[in-house]
């Protein structure tokens, strides 16, 4: 099976987010970048599928500038066979999805695995866009995936429950835990990641429907009202008259 895994290059989940140059640019100083956590589930699942079937090939793709290559190399170390970088800032969800679907059209894949959502843009939408552009079906977010013959059996998380879904390839899937265990790169993996192919391709043009004016960070809370545990009546009072959540 030929699998494409789309990964993001995002700040580590503990990062403090700040902006510089008059709030026009993300401040990457001191920030450690990682493979998007949900994307890492997608990659881990792809490796499980390939290793179980004993055949197949995994390509990882990122739409990003040259800074993301370390993240792509990490995906190669974890076990992907090839990496592709579409050389551009991921300007919008539509832009990114257009690049991914174009790559899929030019290289035949059976399955496209992505994360449930990116933790920078949180769109949760690139998979659906890609599927629509390819005229494929998309299922997101899935917590379990089994391949039986030519059928894919999936467990999808729905509002307050789970849905079992069956479908045929080709498909675009958004992954989340516990779909697969994260893999720790082996010494051999790390060595071979330097020689595995990492191809850089040019983006195709997309008309952008918006203009970024500025970035902002949230206003800090104005201070926490501390209530003595022996005086919870005061808390009830605040919940009633200030937060107005009791009726």
């Amino acid at each position: 099976m030929k699998i494409l895994v789309c990964i993001t290059h995002v700040p580590d989940t503990t990062s403090k987010i700040t902006f510089i140059e008059n709030n026009s640019k993300f401040n990457s100083a001191g920030v450690q970048f990682i493979i998007g956590p949900y994307d890492e589930y997608a990659l881990s699942k792809a490796i499980d599928i390939r290793d179980k079937q004993g055949v197949g090939e995994i390509t990882v793709l990122n739409v990003g500038t040259s800074e993301t290559e370390n993240t792509l190399r990490k995906a190669l170390a974890i076990g992907a066979d090839k990496a592709v970088r579409v050389d551009s800032e991921p300007i919008s969800s539509i832009f990114t999805a257009t690049q991914i679907s174009n790559f899929v059209k030019n290289n035949s894949f059976d399955l496209v695995l992505m994360g449930r959502e990116s933790i920078d843009f949180n769109g949760g939408i690139v998979h659906t866009l890609v599927a629509e552009m390819l005229d494929w079906e998309c299922v997101n977010p899935i917590m379990k995936l089994d391949i039986v013959g030519d059928k894919l059996l999936m467990t999808k998380e729905v509002d307050g429950g789970k849905e079992e879904i069956e479908a045929n390839l080709p498909l675009v899937l958004g992954c989340q835990e516990p779909i697969a265990e994260w893999k720790i790169p082996s010494m051999k993996g790390i060595m071979s990641s330097r020689t595995k192919p990492l191809v850089v391709i040019d983006p195709i043009p997309v008309s952008i429907g918006s203009k970024v004016l500025a970035f902002e960070v949230p206003q800090p809370k104005s201070g926490c009202k501390m209530i003595d545990p022996s005086n919870l009546e005061q808390l009830v009072e605040l919940l009633k008259n200030e937060a107005k959540v009791l009726n």
Binding site: P11, F19, N122, G209, L213, V217
Partner: peptide
């Protein structure tokens, strides 16, 4: 953006 740790202001 950034899971509520930031915002982006844009014109359509």
């Amino acid at each position: 953006i950034y899971t509520g740790k930031g915002f982006i202001v844009e014109e359509l």
